[in-house]
Design a protein around this nucleic acid. Structure first.
Lengths: 258, 258
DNA sequence: AGATATTTGTTCGTATGTATT
DNA sequence: TAATACATACGAACAAATATC
């Protein structure tokens, strides 16, 4: 009864287009048209007729694009569908899914951190403003004293990671900055790390603080090689400490298991 | 009236749930239920009533999850919605979107490669089988002779990257392996690199081949430090070469622009 | 502030495609 | 081949959000 625009030949010449296909076509369209973040895509109605899809199918395609951070949509007059730049946080969330079923070990993560964090720190020389130093020092104030509660213990560990994330945000190399931030996030979220961070870690805090203080000094003096060296030792020290914590708690953990 | 777990205040008693919200709820559900790849989710109908959403909304949510590589769907009896592990290729595609509007420079990429590839190569010592060596040698055969056509030129550059990707696949550290593979992909797809790869690069090929031959020797001898050192020099050499190519073609490129 | 127009967001009924038995 | 069970697709009606007047 309803029109039925389709089916005038045997197989599937204009076969039903699945959302994934439309999704890729829109992606190609963005690329070939050299669209930039903020640019408008044709509105839903237009897309529906352009791609010969139903409203539901088109919306599924748009949702998929939205989930990948490639478009955003706004309602109302002047609203519509807009090209977006995938944000750093969203990108890290998407990538974290890859490691969800392949949980890396502390050693896996620190192997890479040992290579990247020193390079990142060195790359900051000549790129820091006074306000950047102040922000870093403010972050350090969160853990410049022994924690008084168990909750504060954990807060301090997070703030230590924030210190490194703040450095990564200042990095002029987007690849290096992203990768370091991502590793920091991995540490924030790994269950084995959370268990470690929840316990008293006086040594980790004190030595970490000392390394970071010296790091800021070297940064102020624009001494790239010293910066690199301090960060490398900092990473090695944290790695060793985390691994020893992990070894200590493993038996305990096994006891709790089924 | 209806249960409404949330929000019974004035505004939205049975407030429309947006797909993104449902999407996160399903994600949480996967986590809390400890579901693993291959496990079935309730079928569409059940999800619809469980989350009090309409079919269309639920389908949009499922598409979003599918786009993120978290679920797959199959039609037919025994079909349904299944938890999936985000594959490496898909993960790299999703992450590549982050760098689409923040195109890193050759220098950005090689700064990181110089840190990671040597570590990756060293991590392979003691993890290689005879068949792995053979596969690598076979890849090298693609570029063990000067190219005869322009097309072969490009093929050889891709095969050189394949050599490194093959190493990354053997890496026991999933984080390190992923990051190196990703950087290789970035090089494959960056337009500036493509332009370089399309030109004759006799020096790049010859020195690369020499480094890789010596690398395999050192790997066979399980000499981690030599492996690391060779790879580091290889990266430095490739970096310098790529940058000089870039510098040479820049004026040419500017001339072509508007 | 309020009315209105524009555009996306949600729902439902129905029909089609596909793989298993 | 037919029956079954499941996802996939369509479209019309309605709801919500928001910019503009």
């Amino acid at each position: 009864m309803t029109g039925m625009v389709k089916k005038n030949s045997a197989k599937a010449p204009r076969g039903p287009k699945r959302p994934a296909v439309i999704c890729n076509e829109i992606k190609d369209w963005i690329v070939t048209q050299r669209l930039k973040p903020g640019d408008r895509l044709p509105q839903e109605k237009m897309l529906i007729e352009r791609f010969r899809a139903s409203k539901g199918t088109m919306r599924e395609a748009l949702r998929a694009l939205e989930a990948q951070g490639l478009v955003t949509t706004r309602t109302g007059p002047g609203g519509g569908i807009f090209v977006a730049a995938l944000g750093e946080n969203r990108a890290m969330e998407l990538l974290a899914n890859y490691f969800f079923f392949r949980q890396p070990s502390i050693s896996d993560i620190y192997t890479v951190r040992c290579q990247l964090e020193p390079e990142l720190a060195a790359s900051l020389v000549g790129h820091m403003q006074e306000e950047d130093y102040q922000r870093l020092e403010e972050t350090m104030r969160v853990y410049d004293h022994p924690p008084e509660t168990v909750g504060e213990e954990y807060q301090q560990r997070m703030a230590e990671l924030d210190f490194h994330t703040a450095l990564a945000e200042l990095c002029p190399n987007p690849v290096l900055g992203f990768m370091c931030s991502f590793l920091q996030n991995l540490l924030r979220n790994l269950t084995v790390c959370r268990r470690i961070y929840d316990q008293p870690n006086p040594e980790l805090r004190e030595t970490g603080l000392s390394y970071q203080t010296r790091l800021l000094e070297a940064l102020r003096e624009q001494d790239a090689e010293t910066v690199r060296s301090i960060m490398y030792k900092h990473m090695l020290s944290a790695w060793r400490y985390m691994e020893s914590c992990e070894a200590e708690m493993k038996p305990e953990f096994l006891r709790l298991g089924k």
